[in-house]
Design a binder for these strands. Sequence first.
RNA 1: GCCCAGGUGGCGUAAUUGGUAAACGCGGCGGCUUGAGGAGCCGUGCCUUUAUAGGCGUGCGGGUUCGAGUCCCGCCCUGGGCACCA
Length: 854
Amino acid sequence: MEPGEIFNLFLAPIFLPGKTGFCFAKKSKNDKIRNMYNPQKVERKWQRFWEREGIFRAKDFSKKPKKYILVEFPYPSGEGLHVGHCRPYIALDVVARKRRMEGFNVLFPMGWDAFGLPTENYAIKTGVHPRIATRKNTAFFKRQQKSIGLSFDWTREINTTDPAYYKWTQWIFLQLFKKGLAYKTKMPINWCPGCKIGLANEEVVEGHCERCGKKVERKEKEQWMLKITRYAEKLLKGLDKVDYPERVKTLQRDWIGKSEGNEIKFPITNSQILINVFTTRIDTIFGATYLVLAPENPIIEELKPQVKNLKAVERYIEKAKRKTERERISEVKEKTGVRLGGIKAINPATGKEIPIFVADYVLIHYGTGAIMGVPAHDERDFDFARTYNLPIIEVIKADKEKDLPKRASLVVSGGGSQRVYEGEGVLINSGRFNGMGSAKARERINDFLAKNGMAEKAVYYKLRDWIFSRQRYWGEPIPMIKCEKCSWQPVAEKDLPVKLPNVKEYKPTEKGESPLAKIEYWIKTKCPRCQGEAKRETDVMPNWAGSNWYYLRYCDPQNAQKLADPKKLLYWMPVDWYNGGMEHTTLHLLYSRFIYKFLWDIGIVPKSLGSEPYKKRTSHGIVLGEGGIKMSKSRGNVITPERVIRQYGTDTLRTYEMFMGPFIQAIAWDTKGVRGVKRFLDKVWRLSNQFLRSSKPKSSPNLKKILHQTIKKVSEDIENMKFNTAVSSLMEFSNAWQENKKGLGKTDFKNFLKILSPFVPHVTEELWQKLGYKRSIFFQKWPKYDERLIKEEKITLIVQINGKVRDKIEVESGIFQSEAKKIALKSPKIKKWLGAKKIKKTIFVKDKLINFVV
RNA sequence: GCCCAGGUGGCGUAAUUGGUAAACGCGGCGGCUUGAGGAGCCGUGCCUUUAUAGGCGUGCGGGUUCGAGUCCCGCCCUGGGCACCA
């Protein structure tokens, strides 16, 4: 039994009048009922009411202005939601409720991103069909979400595993294929031996599988790829137009990794072959003393006839290919390579012959897969040059002494010491470019080499194409057919969806193929082009496929003819406010922007909408377990919403989640802190019931002023996601009310309930009804504060001497310096401190302080 | 190594952007109320002191300023991201 349950035993007799089992509860029964409320009863009542009345339904084409508020839809795991998952839902629910009261037609939907590995692994273990498990899990998630009173429009619920939904996920794939943005290719992939699955680069964390933690291997496989790289520039540019947190933009920009530089052609002696090199530092070309090719660079094939030590080179390449990326990285400092014997390149700037190497510190997937080695000005080239005794020529001199590297790598070469200087500066040892600054030299050297066609400006991105195949079962089948004669053919659109067939064995095959590969009847089909015998693709899509476009489907969730009606998209899109996890910044957020831009380009999304799906993006911090440790089943420190609701009720859970700390920050759960919030709500309940018994028409001016200050604070804080201070200001008001219990009038009481209602929807509905109203409080208008009322008439003026606080005096607000000085100098404390000293200077800040400098 | 965020009481944190440091809440201690407390209310940063009063206090060291948690320079630590990207 949990501690909370013991507590409940004590509370039970209080909450259930007439069933008192303990004598101590008997006496003040009525008082207790008035002092506390029964959360279970109140909450269930209003949740049913909302559902029955359908008051959170979003209306297509309503004349009201729209707001589209979106929270990332969850993957319905078997474990259910814990209090950490609830926090972003509650936060955006607060926003959605406020927006409705502000007169907006709000779309606040929910759905299920239900394709994915955990369900499939569960099926492998238990034999339970993923469809069954998904149905069970989503039902559980939905029940949990409903229990916390979230104002979702459940009539728009979607599920990515529903064939009526994934028909369109497949349809999008076909459009990508038709536009040449989906292609199948053999490539070395990140292979997880644990999940038996190929992983996207984004799913590899420090060389290990994001999901199971197993070490990722390299494997050659045929994979469907999406050309997200073609959208690199658009994805980058689009960031300037949207309201995302700066750190999210930075992360995406870094991930896209644009670098501007030059491609330079290095001729090979006695040959027509040119080696194309990419560099951002063409200003260092006079220091390029060798070239390096990535082991996978296809140009090696062309060079082979001239290579004298072919065996050694081939051996090196074989070895390099077997290494995982992780192994390559762990050998950063010990650079290996092999020289191509008998071939030399010519540095087009100096005209000198330089050696060529194959080394795995050069990566095939970036730039041209070949670099020029400039050991004096690149740490890696320096390491390599030292190992192979290559000449090191300094060509850049730092402008200022302070620009020099702090930890310089020193080497004795030709008698003098040299160091790796990676910064910019002034060119030396560079012929006619000597004395020029780096930036200018880059232009000039490019122009100089471009004349002979030996150089041109070039842009490269770190972003790589997106591996879109998974050799698994529980995903959207890729709607492609392979015909021996016609090669890959798309399934006809009229034949969509390609439904996922039932299998008995969910494990991937030993060859690492999808379990679908064993279902003969499903694979066998006809080629859509030649009608000959053909085979279906057995790979499925990754779990990101369904979430790429789900926000569009919410606008028109039941449409059988189209992905979504353009008119509805025009009405609802773009998403006005999208909240989600930081961990999705380079995954879902980037992917979905890409797919949206594609759909916009091909006209599925109306052109008059912008090219960005999300106007504003915010991110939440994760909730840690008690004591600041991550919540996990294995640690046994998971706190479920049910547990908190059973003990304190949903309104307490909601308010505590908002109050516990800054929304964007990671924060630890504190069970004791929850109790404090319950006390606050009990206080509100108590004071409200006293009010209802003897309501006053008018408020005291002071309480009215505090209320209006609270309206201002709460309204602004919700917009800035400063929910914690919004709640604390509501608490402050309740404290002021408590001090002056009879000081609140009806209008202001109603206003208080309204600004409290997004956080505490159930209790405020109950109190609203007790006031005699039949319609929900959420049909009320959000109160506006009165600028004149929030002004303080009297303020505390700080009196300082030499910047130290020496006294505080009550004065009329707006007081002038001369007047304030007069009053301040009368203060006995100030007199004492000043003594005979002379005031040299007086600093006066209106309504704040007066400071005497002596 | 590079990029981002942060470091404030016993704890979670707040501070109108340079102007009363610690609002709000938790916990401990002390008190009040009560037949009782499991409810409610008040006080409580630390040190000297009965109180008054004073001193010290926002990671560390400097600086700017009448005045710095906030600005500048240099460090240290924590969390997150990226990492042979030419």
